[in-house]
Amino acid sequence: MTTTQAPPATDRVTSYSRAINEALAEEMRRDERVFMMGQDIGTLGGVFGLTRGLQEEFGPVRVRDTAINETFIVGGAAGAALGGTIPVVELQFADFLFTAADEVFHKLAKWRYMHGGQFTMPVVVRLPSGVVGGAGAEHSQSLETIAMHVPGLKVAVPATPADAKGLLKSAIRDPNPVLFFEHKGLYRIKGPVPESSDVLVPFGSARVARSGTNLTVVATGLMLGRALEAAEQLAPRGIDMEVIDPRTLVPLDIDTIVASVEKTHRLMVVHEASRTAGFGAEIATQVQERAFFSLDAPVWRVCGTDTPLPQDPDLEQACIPSTDDIVTAALALAAV
């Protein structure tokens, strides 16, 4: 099931980072229980500038700079949620999920379950994610599959400004913990974003970013744009690609993907994360379980290399799928 955005007439063009900033401000205006904490988010406005202006509007009590203490940022958010607030916290890089792993994967994910459903855990953890150009092996990873593997966490992977805003607003209103993977390489991209502060993008609702007939490509984050570029290059060559952005991995809208495969009969999953046991493996498995006889060819994956990411920006780009890689793979898969 695909949702449609608000009518274009009410949209205006803004950046992915501005869209996130707007979502934070609107939700903090709407609900006084919402507060933020993280490293350098207040006075500085975030190392990527995402929270700029928010401490000015909401004050240092609701937009709090912390020490370098990821276990507190996430564990403290868990405790603050139990105390009746709605924390929206930032880990400076998504990679720091590992620094706060006990708090993320045990406390956020399991507290409600372990304690018999007596509590809710309305926490959003904002996670600047992915390759951005020379940030190195510990500041560039795409860890959404790891988040997806631990029951109890919702996982958002917005690829457009409108989705970044609409999904973040949904995340803040969700009573469950949400890991919100913002792609650092997308912060500056621009796109139409609804003017209204009431437009939410629901979780578990994939978006068909491009309709096509020959081949389905599932792509998230930075890879969505590359898949769409590849589709434009392939169109004159007789391959009409359908491009689907799941937008959230938990919950995953597998129905939209299966419906597309039943139409195109071929599927390729593109992700920036390492190939082995990435979400591409999960989607491939679910599709063959549900639509094996619709497939005319094996499901392929175009993914990041099974290596740490080198610090050098050129080497780093060679580790993640390029538009050319997607084009090449699509041509080959179409010929199978």
């Binding site: 229980r33 507060f35 609701r62 564990g75 868990a78 405790g79 139990l82 105390g83 607030t85 924390p87």
Partner: peptide
């Protein structure tokens, strides 16, 4: 693990003034 959760709950009380 209760250290960080406890500090967080106390933060909620400070924020809410409860």
């Amino acid at each position: 693990s209760n250290f960080v959760l406890g500090a967080g709950t106390a933060l909620a009380s400070q924020l809410l003034g409860d």
